[in-house]
Design a protein around this nucleic acid. Sequence first.
DNA 1: TCAATTTATTGAAACGTTTCAATAAGAATT
DNA 2: AATTCTTATTGAAACGTTTCAATAAATTGA
Lengths: 322, 322
Amino acid sequence: MSTLKDVAKKANVSVATASYVMNGSDLITKQTKEKVLLAAKEIGYRPNGNAKNLKKNKTNIIGLFLSGFTGPFFNELLEGIQVAVIKRGYEMVVCASDDKHRLLVERYVDGAIILNYHISNELLDSLASEKFPIVVLDRELENPHVKEVLLPNKHGMDYTVSHLVEQGHKRIGFIAGSRESFDGESRLEGFRESLSKHDLPFKETDLIRADFTEISGLLCMAKFLEENENYPTAFVSANDEMAMGAIKASQQTGLKVPDDIAFVGFDDIDLSRYVQPALTTVRVQKKQWGQTAAEALFAMLQKKEGIDEAEIPIEFIPRQSS
Amino acid sequence: MSTLKDVAKKANVSVATASYVMNGSDLITKQTKEKVLLAAKEIGYRPNGNAKNLKKNKTNIIGLFLSGFTGPFFNELLEGIQVAVIKRGYEMVVCASDDKHRLLVERYVDGAIILNYHISNELLDSLASEKFPIVVLDRELENPHVKEVLLPNKHGMDYTVSHLVEQGHKRIGFIAGSRESFDGESRLEGFRESLSKHDLPFKETDLIRADFTEISGLLCMAKFLEENENYPTAFVSANDEMAMGAIKASQQTGLKVPDDIAFVGFDDIDLSRYVQPALTTVRVQKKQWGQTAAEALFAMLQKKEGIDEAEIPIEFIPRQSS
DNA sequence: TCAATTTATTGAAACGTTTCAATAAGAATT
DNA sequence: AATTCTTATTGAAACGTTTCAATAAATTGA
């Protein structure tokens, strides 16, 4: 593989000059510039990113660290981060890990956004620094170089429960996702809190554990209805997909939604307004979430202090399922 | 940030020794080993991946290059690649690009899997080499260091069309995705070819252009039905999501599926068997696809020649929508 | 015409590792 | 006790860049 040295030799200049040319310095005269560029092309030169990074002590890459690619995988979130990152002239890489977290630890990136329950708080504490800021999307963490950018899940649950209470519901169930999800659990927690604000009890047996997929919602709800002939008049779901599945299951059992049983989702995915009945839900700006996360990271990277705690906007969307 | 040198100094050994310890060489005596490890821990040492990579001329990372994070984003595919990559002691990074493709060009990875229509054949041709093998998932490309791992889309269309013809359909429409998708277009092409094998004509006006999302399928189908009171008795869709959307649109117009109009999807996503009516489709092993792609890459990386052209298995799944 | 200034080019050190070849220290063989 | 053979440790070069400081060349001003 050819290097800058090869280019320099071919163009009859020093490697310093070649380097300046490759980086578009304006000290270099036009004709040497062309000479070098031509040589580089002829020889098929590709810069070596590792050497660059090593020298500059900087990669211009930020990393998004996920726990995996299955499960609730937020395309919009990725898109939001990507947009913000590109705007800053950086690149983004996303990777999944459950063990060594090599890409996170070995300084391949200038900063990290974390949504990975396999990564411990201790590790993050030991990594975060002035030079290596971190944004967490899935936990609370007190550290000057770590910033939390969290969804206002509890806020959303307040809307939801108030709405349901207004409609006269007294016994409300909950469809939860997998326990590893910070958002899922904080929605459940928020649900519990909102319920008690309204002096309503929660029967633990009305808690259904699914795994965020539509099909798990369908299956678990079907099972629930089969086992309990006495059921809540309403269910809150930790996301839209499960709510949709649960609605299908209820309908297949002959129940009318929302008359016999009401459902409220969370997220407002595109499909929610098109299903029958259209799904009541809480709209979450996932793309905005990603963007905010990236912005927060860049703010730390540039030591700008005054980043105001931007809340991710949410909105309650009443539709026909409740 | 502390370096190996710092560790060495603290442990009173040479950096060579420290390096050997960090890499678990068995030449080093147990007590120096402990001494170094302790020093490393105390000092909070993290290896510098860039320096390592530079020296070793190898990153142990393979890259998956996508065009974006929206659109048909194949979690299963990612999962498949990830599994195979981890098994080999490598890591995977995924990134999106539409312009400079820095991460692809600057040797951050040891090999690449491409599913990104922004990346030109010329670029791939210039990058691919003995030392840098490439697997393409979205094009045909003749190059000794590039391997195609493609879905048998046309094969799937043969099944589909034969099935529909057997059921007596004579006028069959097609719901296509966005033009940038290689798979989408090759399904369309396959559809055309299968149709003509059966001596059936294809009316260009029976081609609906959507964008792979369920909602686009719904919207485009609704529009089509509104504009054409005369419509095909069956539609083949380039993926399941659009088929589901189209079915919803048809039902909302009062049509009975499959009696008035039949639908066949492609992919067999989880949900397909649970919708009403259950969706006839072609099952594609996406995870297998990813795994095969990664295996093919490793085979090239290890110069193993005899990689047999593994076909990704597909299977026709007749259900109630046709 | 010569000094002073500006502009273009270059040599060489440095970034943090790995790893070869060389050395030092111990153990084993005479 | 001297020699050989192991084993553990180390010095130093190398990987491919960037960038500072130094030089060389060209231009200007007197």
